[in-house]
Amino acid sequence: MNLFADALNWILDPANYVGPGGIPVRLVEHLGFTVVAVSLAALIAVPFGFLIGHTGRGRGLAVATSGGLRAIPTLGLLTLVALWVGIGLGAPYVALTILAIPPILAGAYTGFEAIDRTVIDSARSVGMSEAQIMRTVEVPLGLPLLIAGIRSATLQVVATATLAAYVADFGLGRFLFAGLKTRDYAEMLGGSILVILLAVLLEGIFTGVQRLVVPKGVAAARPSVDRGRSARPASGMDPAITKGTH
């Protein structure tokens, strides 16, 4: 436990909170990077996902592409892109945006697909236009699964951003690699704990958001949330959303 005490001391040491390499700066870099990468991915994936979900077309292609992307090791993609574009933030942005697309895409279209067909059919029969069906029926009802997809993507980007410090001087991952270089285990462990805390915090926030976006009438039907086998796609059961690459 001595190691953890050292790590804790490192985390609490005021000296580590100043300057461009301090914890606050690294944390902001890490979070900022995550927000930008996930937003970029969402900007690309959400419209396509909605379109696939609404029309039912292009699903096979989306699944195949996501599957292919999933098997590609993150570190390989990162180092390869870094060789192409040089050391810096470019490579991580490209690599992580690409990696964040499949879960968001899957969240968007499975959200639509999960809606009871009769609801959509009846919306059409009473005279809703396709755009109205999408806006007032499919988007609100599909939102929980879309958020689940964004959560997967976010956690993955947070994790991979740590790894990205291998090819770029940014983020909390720097502490891990710097510690590794100088054999300063307190720094490695302290940095690791910070990343883990960040990830767990984000996981918690997303769990809350996911609950909030379940439309009231849908939530009302659920006998119990905890036996309801969770609104999120069970990890593993939807490989398209849950991705194992950290």
């Binding site: 953890f4 790590a7 991979t160 690791s192 883990i196 990890s235």
Partner: peptide, 28 residues
């Protein structure tokens, strides 16, 4: 019911932990 909540929450959190930091924590 109770163990379901506990176990699944724990595994969900575990799964949320990034791999590289975990590699550093396990030796400790």
């Amino acid at each position: 019911r109770i163990s379901r909540g506990v176990i699944l929450t724990a595994s969900g959190l575990l799964y949320a932990i990034p791999s590289l930091p975990l590699f550093f924590v396990i030796p400790a």
